[in-house]
């Protein structure tokens, strides 16, 4: 049971949030800072495939890409993780063996979260038993909207328990929450209930991750840190497909939470096409020429 009345979570002013975001998007990231930021971005990506049409073969290809982003550049970092449905965890674990790439599995009746508690727990258990290092769960948005915050809290706490040593990322699906006040409230519930990461979106709902919504969540993480000293990770997911935007996210993290959060231990991008754009930017920096997508593998 939650101890707080989450209706009293701090309020958020959308226009103020947007103003702050505008300040950050006007920053200029140049030369060495840009190169470093781009490499950091690659290393923070959860390379993701969450399609109905996913197959073992597709997952294998993605796992290879996660470890070898561009074969002509052997010194590139790997991505942070690959993110798949529970039934592909085994395959993925096999493919990334020996690398630093983690395997994350979505769970709890992803993406809608509509199922019984038993199924959700079992879903999680299967993922963890199959070796997932990380679990990306979805909250019950319906219950959240009904004001059943204890239900949402308890569910997250139960999944956290089921995760064992796997790190738990809690997807708020912000695009369905409707206001920043509610995003803040859901963030508070998730962190109090045991989330290791809070995550914006499944990628199945629009809008997915945005800078403003991420800022709201980063500020919630900051308050939690102030209060408890415990660091919570952040994962914006969905809709982040170009380098410039990724760098803006990193700046936002740096200016909100400081340098400690700037590693894939505490910050992730959930993305499928971001990696290629970052690679193109890195190539452009190396060669001085603008790049074409045809020269980068689409897996």
């Amino acid at each position: 049971m939650a101890e707080k009345d989450y209706r009293l979570s701090p309020r958020v002013d959308q226009v103020g949030i947007q103003d702050r975001v505008d300040r950050i998007t006007k920053r200029s990231v140049k030369s060495e800072a840009k190169r470093k930021g781009l490499l950091m971005t690659l290393n923070m990506i959860d390379l993701t495939t969450l399609e109905g049409a996913d197959t073992d073969f597709k997952v294998k290809q993605m796992c290879y890409k996660a470890q070898h982003l561009h074969d002509s550049f052997p010194d590139l970092p790997t991505t942070a993780a690959v993110c798949v449905y529970p039934n592909f965890v085994k395959t993925a674990i096999n493919e990334v063996k020996g690398s630093k790439v983690k395997v994350a599995s979505v769970a709890t009746a992803f993406p809608s979260g509509h199922s019984s508690s038993e199924i959700k727990l079992l879903d999680t258990k299967i993922a963890v038993d199959n070796g997932a290092h990380e679990v990306d769960m979805v909250i019950s948005r319906g219950k959240f909207h009904s004001g059943e915050y204890n239900f949402v809290f308890d569910e997250i706490a139960a999944i956290k328990e089921a995760c064992g040593n796997a790190r738990l990322k809690v997807i708020l699906e912000t695009g369905e929450l409707g206001t920043f006040d509610k995003v803040r409230r859901a963030s508070d519930i998730a962190m109090d209930a045991g989330a290791d990461f809070i995550k914006t979106s499944t990628g199945k709902i629009s809008p997915a991750a945005t800078l403003p919504v991420t800022l709201v969540m980063l500020e919630a993480i900051k308050d939690y840190y102030y209060e408890t000293g415990k660091m919570i990770g952040m994962k914006p997911a969905g809709g982040i497909s170009n380098s410039k935007l990724a760098l803006q996210y990193l700046l936002m993290v740096k200016e909100t939470l400081g340098g400690k959060w700037l590693s894939n231990e505490w910050f992730r991008f959930g993305a499928s096409s971001l990696a290629n754009d970052v690679l193109m930017q890195i190539m452009k920096q190396e060669s001085g020429n603008y790049q074409s997508k045809d020269y980068f593998s689409k897996d």
Binding site: D13, Q14, V15, G16, Q18
Partner: peptide, 13 residues
């Protein structure tokens, strides 16, 4: 006073 832009045209949400 700010005017929230959620669910409006040009929503910044």
């Amino acid at each position: 006073h700010p005017v929230e832009k959620i669910g409006a045209a040009g929503s910044g949400y």
